[in-house]
Amino acid sequence: MEALKTKAELQAIQSRINPHFLYNSLNSIASLAINNPNKTRTMALSLSEFCRFAINKNNEHNILIEDEIKMVGSYLEIEKIRFENRLNFSLKINEDAKKKSIPKFIIQPLIENAIKYGFNKTSNTCNVQLIVEIENNGILIDVIDDGSDFPETPICGYGLQSIYDKLEILYGTKAKINWTNAPIKKVSVWIPITNS
């Protein structure tokens, strides 16, 4: 019964896609369709690819990091069309980490949050960096941006709440999520490596 309850809770979390992201993407596609059919096509295909990952037909809760990165790539392609040269991103993924398994939709909400709150008010640009490493027999995920500092109690929006919920269900107190403003602004998630 406990296993079934956990599975149901995970399925409920997993089925969520941020509706604001979908609305913004579809509105951008509608706007582009008038003047830029090539960008419209690229954005629509990227959104389709992202939704293919998001709609979990096999009810799988874990994903290889390299596959999660592909999903993040589809998401970033959409956002890059929306924000053009105001958005820059870089990925640094440890080769050994790529074949490790993590809960699905851990990295993408972190990136989404960084883009939402990471725009530099002076330059009106957003620079996001994703670093994934193996550390202390776990997976360390860092998402860095150069926006304004986190408040003392960061806003826990749609995506971050799903991460908190998922980590608590799967790992209890074993997984960790924290944020810092100095020496760099970043959100870090550490997940223990398991055999599943």
Rank of each mutant, 00 (worst) to 15 (best):
K98R: 13
I81Q: 05
F119T: 06
E68V: 02
S123G: 02
T173N: 14
K98F: 09
N195V: 00
I63H: 03
K166H: 03
N58Q: 11
G138T: 07
I81H: 03
K166C: 12
H20N: 12
N62W: 15
I69F: 08
S48F: 14
L47G: 03
W190N: 01
K80D: 02
N195S: 10
R86G: 01
N38I: 11
Y75C: 00
I13C: 04
K70F: 10
Y23M: 07
E66S: 11
E133S: 15
S48W: 12
E168D: 15
N36G: 01
Q11C: 04
M43F: 13
I139M: 08
A12I: 06
E152M: 10
C126G: 04
E68I: 06
S90V: 02
K185W: 13
Y75A: 05
E49R: 13
N38L: 14
Y117I: 01
P192W: 06
D145S: 07
W190Y: 12
K92M: 09
D142M: 12
S123C: 04
T40M: 09
S90K: 10
L22Q: 01
T40A: 02
K7Y: 06
A30M: 11
L170N: 03
K186T: 02
N120F: 10
D146S: 11
K174L: 06
P183D: 05
K100A: 08
I163E: 02
I102Q: 09
S31A: 14
S148W: 00
I134G: 10
C126R: 05
Q14G: 04
T6G: 05
A33V: 00
K99M: 10
L167N: 01
N24R: 05
M71L: 00
E112G: 02
E135Y: 15
K186N: 13
S90I: 01
T194L: 12
S162H: 09
A8L: 08
W179S: 12
P19E: 02
N120M: 07
A175K: 09
S31Y: 12
L76W: 11
R41D: 14
K121P: 02
I29R: 05
M1H: 01
K104Q: 11
S196P: 02
V143H: 05
K121I: 12
I177M: 15
D165G: 00
R86M: 09
K116P: 08
N178S: 14
G118K: 03
Y117Q: 03
E133F: 10
I134H: 12
N136A: 10
E95P: 14
G118V: 04
T122I: 15
K166E: 09
K5V: 03
L130Y: 10
L32S: 08
N36F: 15
K70N: 08
R52S: 03
N178G: 10
S31T: 11
G73P: 04
P183L: 04
P109C: 08
H20D: 08
N94W: 00
K176V: 03
M1F: 03
L130I: 12
M43G: 11
L170D: 04
F119M: 01
P37D: 07
E84I: 09
L87D: 07
I184E: 14
Q14F: 10
D67P: 00
N127W: 05
S188Q: 14
S101P: 00
K100H: 13
K57L: 06
N56T: 04
K92T: 08
I193G: 07
K92Q: 13
I141F: 06
C156F: 12
L130G: 06
